[in-house]
């Protein structure tokens, strides 16, 4: 987990890494992320060359392809010294924990990757740990419950921060979720390669979500959202999935 910067070092400018899934499937969440950061007084730069972090290739064992995409990411974000913020714990975990090792045979980029790793944050982590602002959320209407996405939780230690923000937004309307730190079964290609296992894992997750009685389950990753949402729709469930940026932007 990254240490919070001292208040004097509060950044005035950030680079937004929107992530490939949010960009393509949930552009409204990207807009929400941008608005939330702007409302917190930050100038939000959006490097136009950004694409993907390369995690799909890495998880499939295709290190050469992953390395190519990671190198592009470093070239895109490293020149600007502003912190990088992304609405995804999983992609941030990739940058923070995988890039330096992946690029180890490319010394210049490996050094840039280490530098980036030290200033790349998931959205709620950035708001709470770096800005020290744990009152960024406004109360929202529907009842909420929180699912802790795996890579954020276990890779970045992301837990207290999103829970604080969800707690503020939902107030007394936050419902507990059974096994809230249990994987939903997405796992990237795992969902396709191991379809039946992934589906069984999703069933257990969706049953817990429906048992919680919440209107909306809040996540920090678009990948998990895509997965749970697809399952809820197939079940014709009325429960919705929202990204934490949408909650902070009061759009749930």
């Amino acid at each position: 987990m990254m240490l919070a910067m001292s208040p004097t070092a509060r950044p005035r400018r950030v680079q937004l890494f929107v992530t490939c899934l949010v960009d393509a499937f949930y552009p409204e969440t990207a807009h929400a992320t941008r608005r939330v950061l702007e409302r917190l007084g930050l100038e939000v730069a959006i490097p136009p060359g950004q694409t993907c972090c390369g995690q799909p290739a890495l998880n499939a064992g295709h290190h050469d392809e992953a390395r190519r995409v990671a190198a592009h990411f470093v070239d895109t974000f490293a020149p600007d010294p502003a912190p990088v913020v992304a609405p995804s714990g999983s992609c941030v975990d990739m940058v923070v924990h995988q890039f330096p090792a992946l690029l180890t045979n490319d010394p210049a980029r490996a050094a840039a990757a280490r530098d980036l790793a030290a200033r790349t944050y998931e959205l709620s982590q950035f708001i709470v740990d770096v800005l020290g602002d744990d009152e960024a959320a406004v109360p929202v209407e529907p009842s909420l419950t929180y699912h802790a996405c795996c890579h954020g939780l276990r890779g970045l230690g992301l837990d207290r921060q999103p829970r604080a923000l969800v707690g503020q937004a939902g107030g007394a309307n936050v419902r507990p979720l059974d096994e809230d730190d249990r994987c939903c079964g997405f796992g990237g290609l795992f969902a396709v390669k191991m379809g039946p296992i992934s589906s069984a894992m999703l069933d257990r997750k969706l049953e817990a979500i429906e048992r919680s009685g919440a209107d909306v389950v809040v996540v920090t990753d678009a990948s998990c959202r895509l997965h749970m949402e697809g399952g809820l729709r197939r079940r014709a469930s009325r429960t919705r999935v929202a990204h934490i940026a949408d909650v902070l932007d009061d759009r749930v």
């Binding site: 929107v18 960009d23 552009p27 409204e28 959006i46 969902a191 396709v192 895509l226 949402e229 697809g230």
Partner: peptide
């Protein structure tokens, strides 16, 4: 094809009509 394993138990959300980065490029 292999993606049928996804839709066996899950609906697949369609990508948005306009991506965020396309929108930002238009603004620019």
């Amino acid at each position: 094809g292999p993606l049928a394993a996804w839709t066996a138990s899950r609906s697949f959300r369609l990508p948005a009509r306009r991506t965020f980065l396309d929108e930002v490029a238009r603004e620019r």
